[in-house]
């Protein structure tokens, strides 16, 4: 049986220094990746808010058009009812006026109320107009803007944020292993061995943890980094 010889301290200094460099590089890469995931979360949030603004602006334009048309349509409907009453009047002067109103005024009002006041599909059985249907048709005219889904962007941001939480813990564990390796570099004898073992152990645990979180998160996003 051979006696176990302690490693040469000068050689151990070099080995630990190389280990410290390796762990530093890994920690830097982990910090970069953690920040990148955080940036992706911030990007998704920003995109969601921009989408919400764009969709809101389009929706407001639709409301504006809808109620503008509804206003013209109600004016047209009221004038048409008035003309019907004028034509049924016993007063000849009112009847004569009705003829001109029907010929000159009603077509103009009808033109303004298009298409809500003119298309059959918007007329309900009780004589009122289907504003919901017109609103849906207006939305269909802007499919790109109406398809914007800010909440989907927010959900993606939340998934990135969740990954960032765990990656940060992994990065901190990696950084902490540097502390132990640093101690191993400056100490000697048994203390050096204990600190070195702890440093390498913590580093490997941190690295494994980081990789597991990354793989699980990327798999969860369907392969998207």
């Amino acid at each position: 049986m051979r006696d176990r010889k302690p490693l040469d301290p000068a050689r151990m200094d070099l080995v630990i220094a190389v280990l410290i460099a390796l762990v530093s590089l890994t920690t830097a890469l982990a910090a970069w990746r953690t920040n990148m995931v955080g940036s992706s979360a911030a990007d998704a949030n920003r995109r969601g808010l921009i989408d919400a603004l764009r969709k809101g602006a389009a929706q407001n334009e639709i409301w504006y058009k809808l109620y503008e048309e509804a206003g013209y349509t109600s004016t047209f409907a009221m004038e048409r009812a008035a003309v019907d009453a004028m034509e049924a009047s016993k007063d000849e002067s009112i009847k004569a006026a009705a003829k001109n109103v029907r010929q000159y005024l009603l077509p103009s009002l009808q033109l303004l109320s298009e298409p809500l006041g003119t298309q059959e599909k918007y007329l309900k059985s009780d004589g009122t107009y289907d504003l919901e249907k017109r609103s849906a048709d207006l939305e269909a005219e802007w499919p790109d803007l109406m398809a914007l889904n800010p909440e989907a962007s927010f959900a993606l941001a939340d998934r990135y944020a969740s990954e960032q939480r765990w990656l940060t813990i992994g990065t901190v564990v990696l950084a902490i292993s540097l502390f132990w390796l640093g101690l191993a570099e400056i100490l000697s004898g048994r203390a050096r061995s204990v600190n070195l073992t702890l440093g390498i152990g913590i580093f490997l645990i941190g690295l494994l943890f980081f990789l597991i979180v990354e793989i699980a998160a990327i798999w969860g996003r369907g392969g998207v980094l």
Binding site: S74, A77, M78, E79, R80, A81, A82, D84, A85, M86, A88, S89, K90, D91, I94, D126, G127, T128, Y129
Partner: peptide, 17 residues
């Protein structure tokens, strides 16, 4: 009375809308 009927026709249409 004729003008009143015309105004009432407008009002009735307005009420229904």
């Amino acid at each position: 009375a004729g003008q009143s009927e015309v105004a009432q026709a407008r009002a009735d249409q307005g009420f229904s809308l």
